[in-house]
Amino acid sequence: MIDAFTGALHDGFGYVAISYCLAAIGLNIQFGYSGLLNFGQAAFLAIGGYIMGAAIATSGIPTIPAMLIAILFAVALALILGVPTLRLRADYLAIVTIAAAEILRLVFGTSFREYFRGKDGVTGFADGFRGLNPLPEYDGFFLTYSRNELWTIIVGWIVVILICVLVWALMRSPWGRVLRGIREDEDAVRSLGKNVYGYKMQALVLGGVIGCIGGFIGAFGAASVQADTFNLDFTFIALTMLILGGAARVLGPVVGAILFWAVLSFLGSILSDLSANPTVAQFMNADQASNVRLMLVGLVLMLLMIYRPQGIFGDRKEIALDAR
């Protein structure tokens, strides 16, 4: 049982959780505050990891400029997706973003192998980042994290905090008010002289860039990127976290990400312990235990959306999603 708890803490605050958390913060700006259905958030993280990774590993560009290049790519992707779709009905953005995410995943996984290394993915780009690690050398684990992991998650959580402060400041400003207005009724906002299209575009770009930064953290944590990480499920899991923690709340995605990974890890430990029991193993082996865990993810998303669309801590009156 102790292992299950420490495992839960480890995963709840680990770099994967941070990466997903930033993806969910981006989705929160787009979906939670502005009502934009970006189902291709994975593409922005893929760009973060792949473009930065390839720039460093293949082209020998230093870490910081490589990150800036990746952010430029993310901005470009947001513009390419937004220009044609943001004037159309809400679901077009959803379909086009899904399609774009799949295209990018396939391209990263199979093409430009000299940069993206096909199925193997990009590696060998994390040295610069790890070289900045000021932590004293230690063997083994501190707080269950290795030295490099700890460095990544310290940086990661600082980034999360800074971005949360930014989101908080923006969302209480008139700018954020316009976004929330657009979520409620874009025609009303338009009739008041606001350039709705421009605001949507800003939200899409900002959310995409935050997702891209999440891609950096994930890539540094694992010291590699693989295209298949960034499949459709990635975005859906980030969406689940957002709804779990509460959409249109600054800390919603953060709470959601920590809780999601902690509970998932905890469940994983419990279920795999169970599956080690020979009686249980007849019904559920280790692989099946992992399936049961993910089935629960789906079930939780459904139940949340049906019964608590405001998230587990949210206030029903303030729910951003009109779900009833």
Binding site: L170, S173, P174, W175, K194
Partner: peptide, 8 residues
């Protein structure tokens, strides 16, 4: 305050 950078 409705401009992005000024909003923050």
């Amino acid at each position: 305050g409705e401009r992005f950078w000024a909003g923050a």
